[in-house]
Design a protein around this nucleic acid. Sequence first.
DNA 1: GCAGCTATTTTTAGTGG
DNA 2: GCCACTAAAAATAGCTG
Lengths: 173, 173
Amino acid sequence: MARKKVKLAFIKNDVSRKATYKKRKKGLMKKLSELSILCGVEICAIVSSPYDIEPDVWPSAVGVRRTLARFQSMPESDQSKNMVNQENYLSKRIQKVEEQLEKLRKENRDKEMREIMYRCLVGEKLVIKNMSSVDLYDFGRFLETNSMEIRNKIYALKKMRIYSSSNNTSKPN
Amino acid sequence: MARKKVKLAFIKNDVSRKATYKKRKKGLMKKLSELSILCGVEICAIVSSPYDIEPDVWPSAVGVRRTLARFQSMPESDQSKNMVNQENYLSKRIQKVEEQLEKLRKENRDKEMREIMYRCLVGEKLVIKNMSSVDLYDFGRFLETNSMEIRNKIYALKKMRIYSSSNNTSKPN
DNA sequence: GCAGCTATTTTTAGTGG
DNA sequence: GCCACTAAAAATAGCTG
């Protein structure tokens, strides 16, 4: 699903088949994890491939057997309260770290916008011309939400320039 | 993953949890199908949810039993060798996210320094005066490691200013 | 509750080191 | 073979009828 659309058929090329397998297995495991965490459902999966001698199992041999047991309609229940706790604990940590990440990303974006602003003030007219459309869009939004602050800033800067240029002969060269 | 980023945590709202479950189960089944077709591997999955009385299985009850039979016929030690349990999987993700965080922090630092630089160029003399000693130290290091780039930048900026100010009457006011 | 819509996020095919 | 990157493709959260 990228760069090129692939046909839904066995990939003949050994190298790319293996590469695809590894990438997609990873993605699949992530999806399994997300579904079980988001919705609190019991899932198991087994992937037997020629690339790994042993099959990959989700979430664990025990979990698989447990879910299998239910599948075969034989009641057998909770032995892994412990695991659920760990799961909760770890997903909370992920959540926390991802929140930090998100915050930092926002800050980062803001700093970028500030840099662009200053570069404009400094006279780099090309800055905006060379921005990608996505960045331009963001910059527009940034300007909207910060217009007051920026106007004040620009005003202050102009005053400073006027002051400094009337002090020393600012005649270009 | 759309309209809004969702936190990786149990969805408390019953309605949206069910909706998410149905959408994601569909997506998961599609992914399972694609992986098995593209790479010719044997996969099975079982999803037991409170929303469906019968668990959903992929690819079919027969296929599941076949894969499971193979899985169960191997010694237990082998079964758990390749186990991808929540704990391992999630801690790997945490690790990765924390790496991203670190990278972003570095970028952030860099952007701050750039902002300071531009603010200096723009004429805000007070910037440096008001910096904390820690920041000043960092800024010094930033200047050292980027001096060449900065010198070039400043040179270019000076030329631009001269050009633009000799073009339009840059008389203050 | 469910089916369809899209803005947005996430996944991934191809690529180069 | 593995990792990081990026453009393109796919999945999906929140909405609407």
